[in-house]
Simulated assay, not measured.
Amino acid sequence: MPHRALVSALLLLCAIAPLVRAASSPAVEDGVRLFREGRYEDARAALTPAATAKPPDSTAVFYLGRIALARDDGKEAARWFEQAVALDGQSSAAHMWLGRAYGTQAQKAGKLSQIGLAHKTRSEFERAVALDTGNLEARDGLISYFLQAPGFMGGSVEKAKEQAAEIQKRDAFRGTFANARIAEDQKDHAGAERAYRSAVAAFPESLSARYALGIYLTRVERFDEAFAVFDSILAAHPDELNGLYQIGRTGALSGQQLDRAEQALKTFLAAPPRENTPRPAGAHWRLGMVYEKQGKKDLAAEEYRKSLALDPNFAEAKKSLAKLK
């Protein structure tokens, strides 16, 4: 999916309704909590017994799919979400996440397999919308599909705009970001920036709007302005962990304000885990990037290893560690 950092931030920071029914046992509830804290291996260990029981626990099955997708394992994620759909074929959320799993697989597949997976991706998103016209995440998935797919497979900027308009009808806030994403995809950076800044102006109390603007500015390498946006968040909310993480991430990407980025990530990692914050494995990886830019290769390697201890399949951390050797 394009702009994964922005999409992830919005999913973390927007108030999203529960996607599955309440966990059915303390063990499953504990697994869901571990997932939300980014402790994926521990969550998987907690959820697997319930997911493989007869009959399987649908919540455990669903979250094992979420864990696999968070680890960028589209094949395993699809296996779990296919089971989730088999358990409840009327679940819009299960179809939406299955579409995301197929989309992740398609990005890594060969050309022949890619076509079939792309069709399945679109079909699952469309099924999710048919079951629940208010499933904005599924509509957002369709926007991604229409922007990425070639014309002979149904790709169309106009179709993406139609979905953005449907989102706008239901949620002006989310619709603004959908339109910004389309503008950015079409290289209309002025239009994209206008949309992000209009969201900040229209929703001045929304941290999500500010984060989206800051992440956009980071993406287009306007790092000083990005730091300023995240600083404005921390000035009003000094304990905002997402703000600390974004300071660290921006430093890691830009090579600027490295000492500050280091301290921000250390503070983030030292805080008790909270829901709706980036996962610790990612923060350790970013801290390793900061150390590497500071020339502290031993410390960088240590952080990459900590990241991989939390998520052994974290591809970016693996690549970073391999480059140091």
Rank of each mutant, 00 (worst) to 15 (best):
A236L: 08
V61C: 06
E205M: 01
A261C: 08
V28D: 00
A23P: 00
A226V: 08
Q256A: 14
R181A: 10
S24R: 14
A94Q: 05
A106P: 02
A226G: 09
V220D: 09
A283E: 11
A283T: 00
L34Q: 12
G255R: 12
F35T: 03
L207C: 02
A70Q: 12
L19E: 15
M153G: 04
F268W: 05
E275V: 05
Y63D: 05
P273A: 14
D231G: 12
E303V: 01
I143T: 03
W97L: 15
S320N: 14
A236S: 15
F177V: 08
E275K: 03
M1G: 12
D72P: 00
Y63N: 01
L299V: 02
K296A: 13
D239K: 15
P273G: 12
K266M: 11
Y245H: 13
Y216W: 12
R249P: 00
A93F: 09
E126V: 05
A172G: 15
A60G: 08
K108V: 11
D185Y: 13
R4H: 03
L34E: 07
A77I: 03
V129H: 06
A130D: 11
G141E: 09
K187N: 15
L207A: 07
A51W: 13
A53G: 05
L269M: 10
H3R: 09
A190V: 10
L324G: 04
N179M: 09
M289G: 13
K169V: 09
L19R: 09
K169F: 13
A212K: 04
A190R: 03
P150L: 10
A101Y: 06
K325N: 11
S254A: 14
M153N: 04
S206E: 03
S24A: 11
I167P: 01
M153P: 00
V220P: 01
M289V: 05
C14V: 10
L11K: 09
I247D: 07
Q90H: 07
D311R: 10
Q257D: 13
L269W: 12
A322F: 04
L10P: 00
L131F: 04
L112P: 00
S144W: 06
E221W: 05
W97N: 07
L112T: 13
